[in-house]
Structures are given as C-alpha cells and as structure tokens.
Amino acid sequence: MKKLKERWEIHKNWQLIFPFLGIVGLGYSAYRLSSLFLQDYHIALNIALAIGIFFLLLKLVLFIFKKLEKKWDFTYRWELISIFIVFALTGSSSVFVGKPIIKFMGITKENLPSFAYWVLYILIGFIFYQILLVAIGWLFGQYKFFWNFEKKMLSRLGLKRFVE
C-alpha cells in the first residue's frame, strides 16, 4: 500500500478512492468487452478473457498516463485518475441527459431523415457534454483543469468569445 501511495503521490487516505474507482471501472470495462466477444460461452471462460483484457487495458492506460503527464497541468499523479473518471462519467452522462431532451423536442428517427436525426443527436450531446464536463469536473475537485480544457476546446472550434 505504501508503494501505491508513493507512486501516485497520495498523501491522504481519501485520495485512494481514485485508484480504487479506476481499477473497478477498468475491471468492469474488461468484463463487458469479454462478454461481447464470448456471448454464449461459459462464465469461467468469460472471466479468464476479462482478466486478459484487464491487463491489456491497464498497460494501455498506464502508457497514456505517461504521455499525458507531460502534456496536462496537474499537481499530483492521482489527479490524472480523477480526470479520466470525469471524462468517462461525462461521456455517459451527456448521452443519458441528451436522450430525453431530444424526445422532449419531438426529434425522432421517424419524423426526420436518419442523417439529420444523428447530426442533431450528436450536436445536442456535444452541448451537454461541454456543460457536464465542467460540472462533473467541479464535483471531483478538478474545476480549474476542466475550465481551462473547455476554453481551449471552444477556442479551437472558433467559439472563443463565448468563454471570455
């Protein structure tokens, strides 16, 4: 445990929640992926494949962490895990929030061409993603990082005047 705390620069026990949530999320993702590949097979085979996928994903995530450590501005390494958790929650939440909004507006696949429906669906999801990114980032104590990230993203889209 001491080695884990040193590696991720954890100074208080509550900060251990981020590596724990990261490992649980990675394990869940690995199991879901193995279930996609082996839908009708025995549970033991599914779990064995999930363990293999888990370690591959772990290697990938740690590689990405090393690359982003140099690029992103944060104080402690454990914050990087919380940033990834915020991105994951925001992506899922924007879809969860966007679907009822689209239904409320009367936008369905039946009353619009398929292409128009998906363009509107993605546009509405993108708008909610931007709002939720800052809000969920604030809940995880990463408001400054996500507000700067948001300003940079919107300025690249030519919408800089909306964040000044």
Rank of each mutant, 00 (worst) to 15 (best):
Q15R: 07
L157V: 12
L33S: 03
M105Q: 12
G158T: 08
L58G: 02
F65A: 04
I131L: 13
I101M: 09
G137T: 08
F74C: 11
V95R: 03
D73M: 04
L36Y: 10
G22T: 09
K144G: 14
G52H: 06
I23Q: 02
G141E: 07
L4F: 10
I17D: 00
S94Q: 10
Q142E: 14
Q130Y: 07
W118K: 03
L132E: 08
E150M: 15
N111I: 13
I107F: 15
L68K: 00
E110Y: 04
V86A: 03
W72K: 01
F55H: 11
S35E: 06
T75N: 05
F84A: 08
L68V: 03
G91R: 10
S92D: 02
L112T: 07
T75F: 10
F63L: 15
F126H: 09
P113W: 05
S34Q: 09
D40M: 12
K67W: 08
G137D: 05
G137C: 14
F55I: 15
T108S: 13
T108C: 10
L21Y: 00
L80Q: 01
K103A: 15
L154A: 04
I51Q: 01
P100H: 13
N13P: 07
L89E: 00
L38H: 06
F65P: 00
Y117W: 09
G141R: 12
L21W: 01
Y121G: 08
I53H: 02
Q130V: 14
K70R: 03
K70E: 02
F20D: 00
A44K: 12
L154H: 03
T75I: 14
V24S: 01
K109F: 13
Y41Q: 14
F37K: 04
K12S: 15
F126R: 08
S82K: 06
L133Q: 07
K66A: 15
N111E: 07
F146W: 10
F74G: 09
G125P: 05
V61P: 00
R7M: 14
L68M: 02
K160S: 15
L89H: 01
K5V: 13
A30S: 11
I53W: 04
Y129D: 11
I43G: 02
P19S: 05
L133S: 07
K103M: 13
P113L: 12
K152P: 05
A44Q: 10
A44H: 09
W78A: 00
I83S: 01
I101D: 01
P19G: 03
G106R: 12
G22F: 08
T90I: 11
L21Q: 00
S93M: 10
L89K: 00
I23S: 08
M153V: 15
V134L: 12
Q39E: 08
R32A: 15
S82T: 13
F20V: 03
I64A: 12
L89G: 09
Y76K: 02
K151P: 09
Y117P: 04
S155Q: 10
A135I: 15
M105E: 06
K59F: 13
V119Y: 06
Q130E: 12
A30T: 09
K151Y: 09
V61Y: 01
L36T: 10
F126Q: 08
L45Q: 12
H11P: 09
G25M: 04
T75M: 06
Y41C: 14
R161F: 12
F55Y: 14
I101Q: 01
F126P: 05
K160T: 13
W14Y: 09
Y31T: 05
P113N: 06
E150P: 12
I51S: 02
